[in-house]
């Protein structure tokens, strides 16, 4: 597990322990990867972050078109792995969580402990640092700079 900011570590560690998630990615909607667990290749994070953000944007747009409230979370159940994707508001702006889990846990547990992690993050977020403006052109540069920080590149 690697996190850019120390206050994210404990809630994420608790989530990982309780949910038994295989891969987890926490990022801002601007593309900055805040923390990751389980990824060994920066290129995978890059793809996952971009795709996760795009999927959430698409479903939010779909909700807008349908005139319903935005979807809180999305999940896909594969044969051996499931994917859970959720956005949540923080004092630092909108964050996105992407979780890949295996058959040794369940969507219910992932969702339960993800919600608890969000509560813990909200309780632990430092006062300083306001939300950043989300610009599409920033996404890639934010992503690359956070990957450099996470992988020491």
């Amino acid at each position: 597990m690697r996190a850019l900011e120390p206050w994210v570590e404990q809630p994420l560690m608790t989530f990982l322990t309780e949910s038994e998630a295989r891969l987890t990615l926490l990022m801002t909607s601007a593309g900055q990867v805040v923390a990751q667990h389980g990824f060994t290749r920066a290129v995978d994070i890059m793809s996952a972050a971009a795709l996760g953000a795009a999927i959430l944007s698409s479903t939010e747009e779909m909700a807008r078109v349908l005139g319903v409230r935005p979807f809180r979370a999305l999940s896909h159940q594969g044969e051996s792995h499931g994917i859970f994707l959720s956005a949540f508001e923080t004092p630092r702006g909108r964050w996105i969580g992407l979780v890949v889990y295996g058959q040794d846990t369940s969507l219910g547990l992932v969702r339960l402990f993800f919600d608890r992690m969000v509560d813990e993050l909200m309780a632990g977020v430092p006062a300083e640092g306001g939300p950043k403006q989300v610009l599409a052109q920033n996404f890639e540069s934010e992503l690359h700079s956070s990957l450099r920080a996470l992988f020491g590149r």
Partner: peptide, 15 residues
């Protein structure tokens, strides 16, 4: 090929 294109890539692990 991936590693040659980007020597900093973590693809060295699966390779």
């Amino acid at each position: 090929a991936q590693l040659a294109a980007d020597p900093t890539s973590l693809v060295f692990l699966p390779l």
